[in-house]
Amino acid sequence: MGFKLLSKLLVYLTASIMAIASPLAFSVDSSGEYPTVSEIPVGEVRLYQIADGVWSHIATQSFDGAVYPSNGLIVRDGDELLLIDTAWGAKNTAALLAEIEKQIGLPVTRAVSTHFHDDRVGGVDVLRAAGVATYASPSTRRLAEVEGNEIPTHSLEGLSSSGDAVRFGPVELFYPGAAHSTDNLIVYVPSASVLYGGCAIYELSRTSAGNVADADLAEWPTSIERIQQHYPEAQFVIPGHGLPGGLDLLKHTTNVVKAHTNRSVVE
């Protein structure tokens, strides 16, 4: 069995187990497998329904001669939608809004960016022009300005110390501490036991640490421990890039980060 097929099978099995364990909360999309990078042309966006009122959005972007996937989250909030992270750029984010209108038909009224990198804030200006209120932590807003990236308009308070959590509509926002970046936030959907790890969490097929220019490698494993301790009931975990899975993604990420750190020390 090929690795790609095995990865998709694991996603399907995880979703099936969740649907059985929580039949009222989960209505997993039966329309197909989780979209992969090879299936999404740059400039297009796919939506994948995880649970009743919960979707991931998947886009792709060219970077350094390669094409990478990027995940975000959409959560229903009454007759409105909360968006977590842009679709990595203005063109993708405009396509995301169009796809949401086509498939869901509810307005996106608020959006949260989970850290300051372009795959999370690139497209904020498109959201703002569409009347979406954009939010991020003060740290993310400051770092985005320093980096020359787009800056969300509103500040999220109460997320300055490791372990801080605040309720934001249908989700809980959690600051686990520094990891992929010093400002990275985690998003949890309690009604569906869905954990969105953003770039602080890796997919299972990833074996290298990737972009760690703004990471705190020493603190990252401790931050992941905080996530595990705060959300032990999480059933569906979405990484910032690639295929979702279960809580095993947290341990896998820790292993990859520690291996990278150990290699760096040896070198």
Score class of each variant (00 low, 15 high):
E172L: 11
G197S: 03
P170T: 08
L173G: 00
S191A: 07
Q229T: 02
R142F: 14
H57A: 14
M1P: 11
A51V: 08
D214H: 07
Q61C: 09
H230R: 08
G2D: 15
M18I: 03
N211V: 11
Y196Q: 02
D85T: 00
G72T: 01
I104F: 03
G158H: 15
V108D: 01
A209I: 08
D79E: 12
L81R: 01
T253F: 01
E147K: 12
Y68A: 09
A133H: 14
S27C: 13
V126G: 09
S22Y: 15
Q229V: 04
I17M: 15
R120P: 01
I58P: 01
L185C: 03
R110F: 02
V42Y: 04
P23T: 05
S38K: 08
K4H: 02
H57C: 15
H57W: 06
T134H: 15
E99I: 07
I50M: 11
A213E: 10
H57F: 03
I20D: 05
P23A: 11
E44N: 15
L81C: 14
E225Y: 02
D216Q: 11
T261F: 02
G210Q: 03
L217E: 04
T36G: 08
L185Q: 04
F116D: 06
A25M: 11
V171N: 00
Q229M: 05
Y196T: 01
P69L: 10
V189E: 08
A90N: 12
P190L: 04
Q61H: 04
N71F: 00
P107M: 11
I74N: 01
S264R: 13
Y48H: 03
G198T: 02
Q103D: 07
E101V: 04
P152I: 12
N211R: 10
G53W: 09
A144Q: 11
I58G: 11
T134D: 11
T134Q: 03
P239D: 01
A130E: 05
V257E: 02
T14I: 04
I50G: 06
V166I: 11
G43A: 12
N149C: 14
A130P: 04
P239E: 01
E80A: 10
L173Q: 01
Y188C: 00
W220Y: 15
V11H: 15
P69S: 10
P244S: 12
I238R: 01
E267T: 10
V146W: 14
E99D: 14
A19H: 00
